[in-house]
């Protein structure tokens, strides 16, 4: 057990180093190298972080959903841990998405919050949806916690696209979607920094996930050891 934890730690250090380098590179690139947006000016640069963070938060919920399915099919505390850590990271990333989006809204449209923007509103719904995951987790009885969490992780992930769609349908009737932020028509010099940032944020997610999982794995190993010791002591 201890040798594999050691190996996992070495891998984590490697991953962390690469991620840190990529983060540094993307910060330099986004703020110093990428060209200034003609219409929006400096605030447009928040986009390089805002969009990758938003995407990765959805990826995190997806990871949690897959882990939940694995847990329900095969069992194993490990999958439950992947699930809860992923949802936690997804929450942090969703909150950052709303915060960065809100800053952008203030700079571009002069107000912190725009109900007409379906994406911001949906992320708020998603945050509420996944906040409930933790409430459920803390309320469930010990022997049901992992199972209920897994069921809810699958359930909530199905709710995400429906929330997106419902908010969009509602908006399209009230207001035409006037703010398009599509990144596809960006010039190549912007696009490349977008991708660097996307990879860096992905690395950040992977590193944090591994870090927390390793921590929990060590805790579990410790607990097993303690249990074994107690059994041994009781036997004599």
């Amino acid at each position: 057990m201890s040798s594999t934890i050691d190996a996992a730690r070495r891998r984590l250090v490697g991953l962390g180093a690469v991620t840190a380098a990529l983060m540094a590179l993307s910060i330099v690139g986004v703020f110093l190298v990428a060209p200034e947006d003609a219409d929006q000016g400096v605030i447009q640069r928040i986009f390089y972080f805002h969009v990758p963070i938003a995407l990765i938060s959805l990826v995190a919920y997806g990871v949690a959903c897959v882990a939940a399915i694995m847990y329900l099919r095969r069992g194993g505390e490990k999958w439950d841990e992947v699930g809860v850590v992923s949802v936690g990271l997804g929450m942090v990333f969703s909150i950052l998405t709303v915060l960065t989006g809100s800053i952008w809204a203030k700079a571009s449209w002069g107000t912190w919050w725009v109900w007409e923007d379906p994406r911001l509103v949906t992320y708020l719904v998603v945050i509420l949806l996944y906040a409930a995951y933790f409430v459920l987790r803390s309320s469930a009885e010990d022997n049901r916690r992992a199972r209920y969490s897994a069921v809810y992780a699958v359930f909530a992930f199905a709710a995400v696209p429906l929330s997106f769609y419902s908010v969009r349908v509602a908006e399209s009737f009230v207001h035409p979607v006037v703010f398009t932020r599509s990144g596809a028509d960006m010039p190549g010099s912007m696009l490349i920094w977008f991708f660097v940032s996307l990879v860096a944020i992905t690395g950040l997610f992977a590193t944090l996930l591994q870090l927390e999982l390793l921590q929990r794995r060590a805790d579990r190993a410790m607990r097993d050891l303690k249990n074994r010791l107690e059994t041994l002591m009781a036997g004599t």
Partner: peptide, 8 residues
Amino acid sequence: LLLPSIIP
């Protein structure tokens, strides 16, 4: 649990 998921 229920209210956020029935927002849609």
